[in-house]
Design a protein around this nucleic acid. Structure first.
Lengths: 197, 197
DNA sequence: CGAGTGATGTCAGCGACTGACATCGACCAT
DNA sequence: ATGGTCGATGTCAGTCGCTGACATCACTCG
C-alpha cells in the first residue's frame, strides 16, 4: 500500500496513475465536444490510453462515469443528518443536512459543465434522477431509524430532495452569484410559504 | 379509415389486430415471469407473433413498452390543472390536478403488478423517475404560463410530484383499501403539516 | 529467487438498437 | 377491373454496449 502510494506520486509504476480519473476526464470532454451518443466507450478508453474492458472495470456503464461523486455526497449527507437534533421536525433535519452536504460540490464552473452535459441527454438525466432517488431513500431510511413514522419520513425526504433540486439548479444558473446554502435556505423558505395555505 | 376500423373490429385484416397491445402484454408477462434482463426483445416479439424490428417501431427501447399510459396521464393532468382556479395558491392547484388525474389509473391489481416489475429493476425505475420528472416539468411550465414565478412554480410542481409518489405507493401497498384520492389528500395534508414549523 | 497479486489487455460472444430495402394486402382513382 | 399508392410488417446486415474467460507482467513478499 505504501509502495503503491509512492509509485502513484512518482508516477513511474507499470501503468500511468489515476486510471479512473483519466477515464472520467476523457469522458466528460468527449461528451461535451461531440455529444454523449456520438461518443463510444472505445474512444473514451483510447483518450485515456486504456482499453474498453478497463473502462467497464471502473464503471458499470457508459453513464456512470459522470457520477463518481454521488457516494461522497450521500455519505456526507447522512453524516450531517445524524448530527441534527432528533427532536426537531423531520423536514428541518433534512433541510439542515442538505445545506451541510452542499460542501462537497465541486466549483461552480465544473458543476455547471457537468450539468450541461447531463441536461443534453435523456439517458444521463435518468441516471441523475436515480441518484437523487437513492439519496431520498437513504434519508427516509435514516429518519425511520430515528423513529419518524411513514408517510412523514418519506414525505420529508422527498420534499427535501425537491428543494435540493431547485436550489442546485439555481446555484448553477448563469450569472448566479449567491452561495448554495443561501439559495437552499431561500428555496426552503419558499416551499414552506407555498405549503401554508 | 372506416374500412380499417371494420377490419380491426372483425379481425380479419392482413395482420392480427392490436400489435402494440400484444407487445405490451407479452412484455409484462415475460418481465414478470423471467425477470427484465432475462427477457430478450426477440422473445417478446415472438410471443406477440411479431419480429424484433416491429417491436422497435412501436417502442423506442426495451423499457418503454411498460410506460404506454404516461402520455394519457400527462394529458389528463394538464387538463385538470387548466380547470383549477388560477387565483388559488399554486400548490393547491397542483394538488387538485393530481387528484383528478388519478382517474386514469388502471385497476389496483394491474397497477400493483406493473409497479412490482418496475421496482425489481433499476433500469425500469430510472425510466419511471424520468416520466415523473417530465410530468413535473409540464406542471411547472403550465404554472409559469399562468403567471406563477419561479422558483415557486418549480417548487410547487416538484412538491406535488413528491406527494403523488408517496400517495401512489400507499395506494398500491398490500392490503390498502382506501381510494387513491383519499390517500393523496391525506399525504398532502401531511406534507403541509410537516412544512409548518 | 520463486510464488502470488493486482491492474491491465485480448478475444469471443450476446443482445439492444438502427438504417435500408423488400413484401404484399388494402385502398383509391380512373 | 386495373394499376398505382400506401402502410404495417419482415429481412438483413451492421454498430455498439457490455460480459466472461483467460493471458500478461511488473511488483511484492516470504
Amino acid at each position: 500500500m505504501t509502495a503503491a502510494v509512492i509509485t502513484t506520486i512518482i508516477g513511474m509504476g507499470r501503468w500511468q496513475p489515476d486510471a479512473m480519473g483519466r477515464l472520467q476526464r476523457a469522458a466528460l470532454e468527449l461528451y461535451r465536444d461531440r455529444g454523449y451518443d456520438q461518443t463510444t466507450v472505445a474512444e473514451i478508453a483510447d483518450r485515456a490510453e486504456l482499453t474498453e474492458r478497463t473502462f467497464f472495470r471502473y464503471f458499470a456503464d457508459k453513464r456512470e462515469v459522470l457520477f463518481g461523486g454521488s457516494d461522497l455526497l450521500e455519505q456526507r449527507l447522512l453524516d450531517a443528518l445524524a448530527a441534527t437534533d432528533p427532536a426537531s421536525p423531520p423536514l428541518e433535519q433534512v433541510a439542515a443536512a442538505l445545506v451541510t452536504a452542499g460542501e462537497v460540490f465541486a466549483d461552480r464552473a465544473t458543476s455547471r459543465l457537468r450539468h450541461e452535459v447531463i441536461s443534453a441527454h435523456a439517458e444521463l438525466q435518468e441516471r441523475e434522477l436515480m441518484k437523487l432517488a437513492r439519496l431520498g431513500a437513504a434519508i427516509a431510511d435514516t429518519l425511520r431509524q430515528r423513529g419518524v413514522a411513514d408517510p412523514l419520513a418519506t414525505l420529508s425526504a422527498e420534499a427535501g430532495i425537491a428543494v435540493f433540486k431547485v436550489a442546485f439548479e439555481r446555484w448553477i444558473a448563469k450569472a448566479e452569484k449567491r452561495s448554495y446554502d443561501v439559495l437552499f435556505r431561500d428555496s426552503f423558505a419558499e416551499l414552506k410559504a407555498a405549503a401554508m395555505n
